[in-house]
Amino acid sequence: MQNHDGVQVDGKVESAASVATPEFDEWANFGDQDIMQQHSAIRAEEAEKIPFLGDKAILKSLDFEPLSSLASEYQSGSAILLEKIKVLGEQYAAIRRTRGDGNCFFRSFMFSYLEHILESQDRSEVDRIKANVEQCRKTLQSLGYADFTFEDFFALFLEQLDSVLQGNEESISHDELIRRSRDQSVSDYVVMFFRFVTSGEIRKRSEFFEPFIFGLTNATVEQFCKSSVEPMGEESDHVHITALSDALGVPIRVVYLDRSSCDNGGVSVNHHDFVPAGSDAPKASEGSEKVTPFITLLYRPGHYDLLYPK
């Protein structure tokens, strides 16, 4: 009896062929595990190039200098983008890049939030988010998740939260926060924590999220969470951002660097503020006051980096 294992893998192999291409006659034996291995080899190779979290790069006004690679990328292309990059330089002081591994939104959020706490030492905000984290834990339990699947990830996030508060034995410096954010054994756990929180929020409020998800992927809420939220490396969309922002009660600003232009001909850079649905979000002052997010992300189609306002 002839067995044709691996015959169907040809297409998949071709799309991943930048690393060592196997000889053709070996392809018949090229199984799923080989493909997985090749994928992780490619990921490792890419990882060498960009850390999970890059250095903070100062933007000179009117000049996206540290992004010379980015600028040259766009040089021959859209004038609108180059204009927008200039405008960005007027409003923002610095950019911090994250690795484009599909976890960039969550990783940007992680670092930006912890850095904010480290710098502000805002203990009431820490108390507030801890209450939300407890709520998320209950949500997951009520949705039927076994505790051991998520408890390590929750514990590790809470640990980071405590350690950025100064004045106790576990307190860490800014350099240490950067080091941990680049350390897979910390960074990926926190990313996964956010994925749990996001998935729990979407499932809990499935009626609210259903139309958005259906418009995005044609999938059910359950399928979407299983295939686009919980696996590592799945990219985030406005559904993920809304859910995470709501669940943790943290507002997020996303600045869009895309080709859209304004009607009046002038160039401005659009942004959208994700403001938590709950009213317990940290606000500048009175309820009528506009919430200004302390987390600002730069979105270019397919990727999120961190922006520092002037």
Binding site: I35, M36, Y145, A146, T149, F196, K226, E230, P231, M232
Partner: peptide, 10 residues
Amino acid sequence: LKDQWSPALT
């Protein structure tokens, strides 16, 4: 068992 794996699974 491939790209759709998640630590949420057991």
